[in-house]
Amino acid sequence: MKLADWIPADDACARLGVRSQTLYAYVSRGRVSVRPDPNDPRRSLYRAEDVAALTARKSRSRKLSEVAVGAMSWGEPVLASEITTVSGGRLYYRGRDAIRLAEDQTLEAVARLLRGGHGAALKRTDRPKPPEGPSIRARAYAALAGRAAVDPPARGRAPLALAVEAATLLDVLTDAVAGSVGGGAIHNRLAFAWGQGPGGPGADLIRRMLVLVADHELNASAFAARVAASTGASLAASALAGLATLSGPRHGGAVEAVRDFANEASERGAREAITARLAHDRALPGFGHQLYPDGDPRAAALLERFEPTASYARLLEAVAGETGLKPTIDFALLAACKRLKLGREAPFALFAVARCAGWIAHAIEQGQADTLIRPRARYTGPALEDAGG
């Protein structure tokens, strides 16, 4: 081998972008070959081919790391799923257009579709009285936590047993939100609990909302549910993980930011509220969605079915005129609840009940994959202590 195929330490370190101690570590691990310098026995030379290969490997590793970091925030898909996707500005549940499903399907039917089931609904009637609590949210947490504490792990369970448990779990959460054990379609039970006549226009609007928000690909709460399910946890535990994640202000709690914006617009005027926010580089909650550059189809489908109150209609018009942004499902959901004069907790409750169908579907699919979700962390902390010291 020619001498040119061997390079001195400073050249090797420069190519690798490391200090001499790291180069010596590569040598000790057998990753870089070393030989004495024939012109100066006190110095060593390092195989250039090994250094080049190691440099290329490090570059690939950095690129993969960058891809992984980017995938954590609206980046490239990182997990295979047959459940839900956003394509061409539309939302699909197992290949079926969610907007079309909202025309006539119930949440129960969509829940079966999401988890890959077919046929008649599977329900148990031996549900206990829902827990008491000062709020819908408190009752929902207590209901799922109670089931998570006693339900068996999902791993290894028969598909039919999981299907029955899934249907029952959705009923248990609905009971907690409604405040009593009930029968019939979920949207009618919620409508009755909230002072809307079952089977009336208010109930149908609730049905549409439930179907439109039942799942939304690999959002934060669905991912949390999948992480829990990957450990073999029960469906209730996975749903509880989803509910806890949904509560954050950047997820299911985002409706509160939309409410604050709508209140600002009502108090000071829509255009004034918009101008003030833009002047201070503040977002317009409820408008513009990263996955839907041409507008959130769920919001458009829902807003077609009712007349927003005057203040919400003015805000819609003003935002469109000033920025061109279109409403998201968060705005449409809040506007619909406002139109029906539902309580303050109604938007979050609707999200929770509907998304529970999605969480369960993701939990079952993740359980079928039988793989643990366990990413590695890229350490950025203090320098490591010398283990041999």
Rank of each mutant, 00 (worst) to 15 (best):
H280T: 15
F287W: 08
R314H: 15
A313E: 15
G288F: 06
P308S: 12
G286V: 01
Y292Q: 02
R298W: 03
A299N: 07
T309V: 10
G295H: 15
L284Y: 09
H289L: 05
L303E: 05
A299H: 02
R282H: 09
E307K: 13
P285T: 10
D296K: 02
L291V: 11
A283N: 09
Q290E: 15
R282F: 00
R305E: 12
L284T: 10
F306D: 01
H289G: 01
L284I: 14
A301T: 10
A310W: 07
F287G: 03
Q290W: 11
G288T: 09
T309D: 13
T309W: 11
P308C: 09
T309G: 15
R282P: 03
A283K: 12
L302K: 08
A313W: 13
D294F: 04
S311R: 14
D294E: 14
R298K: 06
L302D: 01
A300E: 04
R305Y: 12
A301S: 11
R282Y: 06
P308E: 10
Q290F: 08
L302C: 06
F306K: 06
F306C: 09
L302I: 07
D281W: 07
P285Q: 04
Q290G: 15
G288D: 05
Y292K: 06
G295Y: 11
D296P: 00
F287K: 01
G295T: 07
G286Q: 02
L284R: 07
F306Y: 07
A279M: 14
H289A: 08
P297V: 00
Y312C: 09
P297Q: 02
A313P: 08
E304Q: 14
R305A: 07
P293Q: 06
Y312Q: 09
P293V: 07
F306G: 05
F306R: 04
S311Q: 14
A283E: 13
H289R: 02
G288P: 06
Q290S: 12
L302H: 10
A299E: 03
A310C: 04
